[in-house]
Computed example of a mutant assay.
Amino acid sequence: MLRIAIQAKGRLNEKTMALLADAGISASVGSRSLIAHAKGFPVDLLLLRDDDIPQAVAMGTADLGIVGLNEVEEKGVDVHRIIPLGFGGCRLSLAVPREADYKGLEWFNGCRIATSYPAILSRFLKEKEISAEIHTITG
């Protein structure tokens, strides 16, 4: 039985389900399901939060995962990227107040920055030699 971890709901779920359908794999997914069994294939879909998918693959709970590279980078787990699927892209954006006299990244020196991706942001700031206080937020 092949176990594929996918996002339970959200933007990646819709694209992933369409991709699987194009491959002939379909499964009935209830709104509160954790596992969906594919029809006609030895495949189980593990329906997880996107930030849990890299760890599920790294630990062997899932054989494969479909998730954004940002989640893999943030978790820092050792998984093999097989192929980019062409959806789910993202970028790191830093916001400043409209009235700020922003002249470049140096503006963030000494600032507090809230993010859902503290590891990625920390690496970025270190690479750019910017010293800022990072606060982790979720949701």
Rank of each mutant, 00 (worst) to 15 (best):
R3Y: 10
F124A: 09
C90P: 01
L47F: 02
A132S: 15
L85D: 06
L20S: 07
A114C: 13
T138Y: 13
C111T: 12
L69V: 14
L48K: 07
K103N: 11
V29K: 03
A21G: 07
Q7I: 00
H37G: 05
R81A: 13
L19K: 00
M59F: 08
I137L: 13
A21W: 07
I53G: 07
A132Y: 12
A119H: 05
I134D: 09
L121Y: 04
S116W: 08
M59W: 06
I83K: 05
L45M: 05
I6R: 04
A100P: 02
P54E: 08
D78I: 04
I53C: 07
D101K: 11
M17I: 08
I120A: 13
L48H: 08
V77R: 06
V96N: 09
I113A: 12
L45H: 01
L20A: 03
I137E: 09
E73L: 00
L69R: 09
L121P: 01
P97Y: 11
A95E: 11
G139H: 11
D52P: 05
I120M: 06
K75W: 02
K103P: 04
H80N: 11
G104H: 07
P97I: 15
A36R: 04
E129V: 05
H80Y: 10
S116D: 01
V77S: 09
Y102S: 10
H37T: 13
T61F: 10
E127C: 00
A62R: 04
A114G: 12
E106P: 09
S26Q: 05
D78V: 15
R49I: 15
L125S: 01
H135I: 15
I113M: 07
A95S: 14
G30H: 02
K9Q: 15
G104A: 12
M17L: 15
E74S: 05
L94A: 01
R3N: 05
L69T: 09
A119L: 06
I25T: 04
K15I: 01
L48G: 10
D78T: 04
S116Q: 13
